[in-house]
Design a protein around this nucleic acid. Structure first.
Lengths: 156, 156
DNA sequence: TATTGTTATACTCTATAACTATA
DNA sequence: TATAGTTATAGAGTATAACAATA
């Protein structure tokens, strides 16, 4: 349990990360904004997925996920095959065209970050990754457990 | 200079931070969205500011800053005094009402983060803060120096 | 009746461009 | 002429609610 000013600073820094995200997004192909890009990224990492699982991994509402997927599918980057186990669902996967696009996007991401973070060691980048992963995990747990479970700070 | 997969992971994690930001924003007063909140936060930290300097600190366009400031000023959280040195500018500062609102918002931020990050030590939160600050600084430097300055990776 | 996914609507954040007032 | 700031417009991301098809 950290000091109050550390939390305030963290809240500020988290909102300020948007600057970096916008900087990265500026390098994306004009046809493929950040939302659909994240979809491609997760399909490469996890293989075939259903909408509901993809939305869960993105941590955004399925309605939003549906639009990102539609955007990518209209351009041939994603294929939607019928799910033999449930006719309501479709199984999403990257097409070769989608794989090529994602490779190009990854290359641009890496170039941009490599240029910006010249002075960072592997260990430092890995440390930031680990902390961000843990942040998301703990924050997600907190939300799924409900607001303010009052575990230690006795409310009265 | 870190390995490629570390950069790809960082890009993914940065886009995914939005989940946490949205979680924090859900606890804001309905009248005060995240944009104006950041304005209040920076005015408390830096004291009296001009629009241009505030936009610089927020790292967003002045037109956007202007709208956030107008939102806060309309509700009495910010006062805009004429700048004696330049009649085009106004000096922005928190009002007592704005200070009270920000104190309440900070309290909610801290409560939420304290609940989510129960297992984090002071040092770990501080480490994440430091890395995020450094990330923004290096990324901003990179952008202000122009794209791909080619300092070490000789292009040909 | 419950669940998967889509679509319609609305809100927030941001950038670009046009504009006003002052330097 | 250049700069500080405002406003209009447009684009991206998200959430909620209503809906269709299937379990």
């Amino acid at each position: 349990m950290a000091a109050q000013n550390l939390y305030e600073e963290l809240a500020r820094q988290l909102t300020a990360v948007g600057t970096v995200k916008r900087g990265l997004a500026r390098n994306l192909p004009p046809d493929c904004p950040a939302g659909p890009t994240a979809v491609l990224h997760l399909l490469r990492r996890h293989g075939e997925l259903r909408m509901s699982r993809l939305a869960e991994l993105l941590a955004i509402d399925m309605s939003v996920t549906s639009r990102h997927v539609a955007h990518a599918a209209e351009r041939g980057w994603i294929a939607r095959a019928p799910d033999p186990l449930d006719k309501r669902s479709r199984l999403l996967r990257l097409t070769p065209s989608g794989e090529r696009l994602l490779a190009e996007i990854s290359r641009r991401y890496v170039d941009t970050l490599a240029a910006a973070l010249q002075d960072w060691s592997d260990e430092e980048v890995g440390q930031l990754n680990s902390l961000l992963i843990r942040l998301r995990a703990d924050f997600g747990d907190c939300r799924s457990r409900g607001p303010l479970p009052a575990t230690r700070t006795a409310p009265a």
